[in-house]
Amino acid sequence: MEGTEFLRDVTVGQYLPGTSVTHRLDARAKLVALVLLIWAITSATAYAAGAVLVLTMLGLIVVSRLPVGYVLRGIRPILPVLAVFLVFQLLFAGNYDPSGSPILWTSSAPEPFPFRFTITEQSLRLSIVSIARLLCLLIVTSVLTFTTTTTGLTHGLESLLAPLRRVGVPAHELAMMLAIALRFVPTLAEELERIIKAQASRGADFGRPGRFAFIRRARMLIPIVVPLFISVFRRAEDLVLAMEARCYVAGAGRTRLSPLRMRPLDWAVLLVVAAYVLLMRLIPWPV
């Protein structure tokens, strides 16, 4: 076992302090902008639209003054999944292409199987653009977490969900659960690191037992998972006690140290994002 430092590779959900425009935006504005951008991203089907989206995302990283390499590093673990996804999409989607677009390639059916792989113009475009779309989704959500503190996120979410309280949505409770969950991600990562180090010191070997030795792999996890669970329960109990001791009642008349406030900049950014999304939808992309 060489690498005992997890936090180095886990970049998702990390907050990087900064003073860029994106950092200073109201969390609610960022959340709404995120939803709008996700809409634009998921509805893009043309090559040109995909390219514009990718460029926009890179621009977003630059505007937020985030180190590009660090943001892209968070995407690296997902690349193998994307590759598998791309291959499957390419091989199979063409067979079920209803658009009647021209066939680019089709496999010669080997004797025993009456099955062909087909790639049509449409399925090729769909495969490539959907990879670009997934990358954009990853980037836009990580930019949000890189530039927003977890408290900001949960307060924003709570405030956005507040109108739904009337129809029985427990906005505060949901936000609190989210806040606690996010808060403990780094703590548990540290705990995990500690336990792995302790067990490695006792002779546990977390190297590679062979890619397909599933049972051996699973057994290796017992000395890690059991202490981790115990620690999670211990922390949960401590947290409950701490909340009780402070007379916590969900949402009962809580005030904020720094209340969220929408400033002109926030509205302006929302307008720009909305206009961008509309344009992306309305432009008749040539390819």
Binding site: R194, I195, K197, A198, Q199, S201, R202, G203, I222, P223, V226, P227, I230, S231
Partner: peptide
């Protein structure tokens, strides 16, 4: 094997 390390709060490693 030759250098045994007892980490902080080692009781948390018991399983």
């Amino acid at each position: 094997r030759e250098v045994g390390l007892v980490v902080q709060f080692p009781e948390h490693q018991l399983f």
